[in-house]
Design a binder for these strands. Sequence first.
DNA 1: CTGTCGTACTACGCCTGACGTAGTAAATGT
DNA 2: ACATTTACTACGTCAGGCGTAGTACGACAG
Lengths: 111, 111
Amino acid sequence: MSNISSDVIRGYNDTMILYLLLDQPSYGYEISKQIKNLSEEKYIIKETTLYSAFTRMEKNGYVESFFSDENGGKRRTYYRITDTGLQYYKDKCEEWKLTKDVIQNFIREDI
Amino acid sequence: MSNISSDVIRGYNDTMILYLLLDQPSYGYEISKQIKNLSEEKYIIKETTLYSAFTRMEKNGYVESFFSDENGGKRRTYYRITDTGLQYYKDKCEEWKLTKDVIQNFIREDI
DNA sequence: CTGTCGTACTACGCCTGACGTAGTAAATGT
DNA sequence: ACATTTACTACGTCAGGCGTAGTACGACAG
């Protein structure tokens, strides 16, 4: 089965990550596994893509980072969604509804 | 109403253009009007995006160009979809089905 | 006790596609 | 006659994705 090209997902990586932060903070490796699972292995985000998304979103104020003081485990950078990030996520969801319909108009099933 | 961001469509501009070439050849200005109409004004492709898509797709063998010998009208560059282009279009349609479902998993309506 | 695997990142730099800006030029409307 | 619409071309910039590489810690097998 053909892979999903990154250009398609581009602009939705942030949305996917934010979705996974809605209920609780999380960190890179965990997020990447969840994306893989939720997409049924159809989309596997690249590490560099993921971590640069975190950096970008923190700069934009969509997420905040903090360190876990895990008992002995390797130190992780956790990210928590902010109010701004939540609003951004909601906007993207609205945009998605529009986009989906627009693109759908250019898809032909019968050929 | 918010516009559709270009990053979302990125990677589907080519698909949209090819769709409009499925039945007959066409040219830039015409295509851009059709995209506007078919999307109900929700997406208006930028000229530079459109013409660079043509160039790229011709280089990739997805379309062929030819000149119209229109009766006196300004000379246009027409584009015709090739077999390779048709195959590419079909693949993109398949990919779209996957992608749509994947992204949909990360959209929450209830917030 | 040693090497490999999984976890958890950071750094650097390239590539592609979108697009801003600008300019050209013929045809058409007013 | 002048503005607008049509139909492009050229040039340069930017962001996001990703390839490659490297670091470092812990767990577990042999």
